[in-house]
Design a binder for these strands. Structure first.
Lengths: 208, 208
DNA sequence: TAGCGTCTAACACTTTGATGTGATTTTGTG
DNA sequence: CACAAAATCACATCAAAGTGTTAGACGCTA
């Protein structure tokens, strides 16, 4: 079975080069190519390709928008972004929109072919610098642990209830202590974190 | 300049195979190998390798713990997890502990070598199924957009202030409207989201 | 134009949250 | 043991948040 590919790329040169690159391979078949998002959004639902290569910046709309609209209709189809942009906003927007892979435009032809096979086999092909940025996103969230260190076990426990939206009296009965004790703990938590409201405390500790 | 590598892997067979694999390559040099985390944590700070390949499950401790301790001391060193585990918990724990790459044990030798070069050049080598899981993690967070849809523009704006811990009066003056209007909007937001407190609303929309 | 949704605003009222000041008991470490 | 840190509880007070109800102004559209 050959893999059905579609292309969304406004640059004629790049698009045609890639189309013929795909068709040079036995098990790849380029079923359609578009130079603007609108056409793609209209035509692709009927074509149901396995993989779509999508450029981000195009006159006539964003490729990310196209993915956002198409992915819910074509959940089986894998979208790979193919872009010159490497900034966090574009990367994360693309992924939350439903892209499964992200390649920078400098990717050599053989790596593009490899990526298509990879995404078709359940992987997430990603240029190395892109992957690094995604990983970095996880690592910034660890400051949380550091803030928590200054809180006692009991205080952390209460903070946890706070994060779940529990009212003081609910925390008190869940922890089998008086509501006054809950107040005291929370007062101490706020003091340590240098905040003065539940939301501020949560943002400071779990805060993005 | 050759890349200085260290290995942390309890299985003697695998460890020795990899060490000799590395040393077969001109520009790679394996400077140390350990069969338990403790020794590694003590010795590595002095060796300052460029790349460390780390197994997760070992008698004597977790490789993830070792990374958590070592990464702050060796920020320049890149840690690649090398494990049979592919569950989300291990993957995300490893990344937040400071790992930059994650390879499954079935990775062929030439891909391991490639990964070491990749991580050394600023990339994040990742087995395809691992990458897919990381990407999937982003996509689950998009339910947020769905919840937001039912809120009007003005309501979303206010919800945003709420998430930042603003008090009603602060929101009112920031948006140049009366505090009573702020109340009304928030009442409507809570109604739509079926909640009855700030924290519940935030959890429902931006919810972890 | 009549109706719908949105944004705006007000008033009254109850509940919850935050803060100040105090105290007793338990637990762990030098 | 003695001291410190942590956990427990109390009372008082004010600020903030949440709830019920009502209503005018605007824009869109069936």
């Amino acid at each position: 079975m050959s893999i059905q590919i579609a292309m969304l790329e406004d640059n004629d040169g790049i698009r045609n080069t890639l189309v013929s690159l795909f068709n040079k391979h036995e098990n790849l078949h380029c079923v359609a190519d578009f130079d603007n998002p609108n056409e793609a959004v209209r035509a692709l639902p009927r074509l149901k390709p396995d993989v779509v290569l999508v450029d981000i910046h195009m006159p006539g709309g964003s490729g990310i928008e196209a993915i956002r609209q198409l992915k819910p209709i074509l959940p089986e189809t894998q979208f790979i972004v193919f872009s010159v942009f490497e900034d966090n906003d574009n990367i994360f927007d693309a992924l939350t929109a439903g892209a499964t892979g992200y390649l920078v435009k400098s990717t050599p032809p053989d790596k593009i072919i490899e990526a298509i096979h990879e995404v078709h086999q359940g992987g997430s092909p990603m240029s190395s610098r892109i992957a690094r940025k995604i990983v970095a996103n996880f690592q910034t969230k660890k400051s949380e642990a550091k803030q928590l260190e200054i809180l006692t076990a009991r205080e952390q426990e209460i903070l946890n209830y706070l994060s779940k939206g529990f009212r003081y009296k609910e925390i008190a009965s869940s922890m089998f202590i008086s509501i006054e004790t809950v107040r005291t703990h929370i007062r101490n938590i706020y003091e340590k974190l240098q905040v003065s409201s539940r939301t501020d405390a949560l943002n400071k500790v779990f805060g993005k």
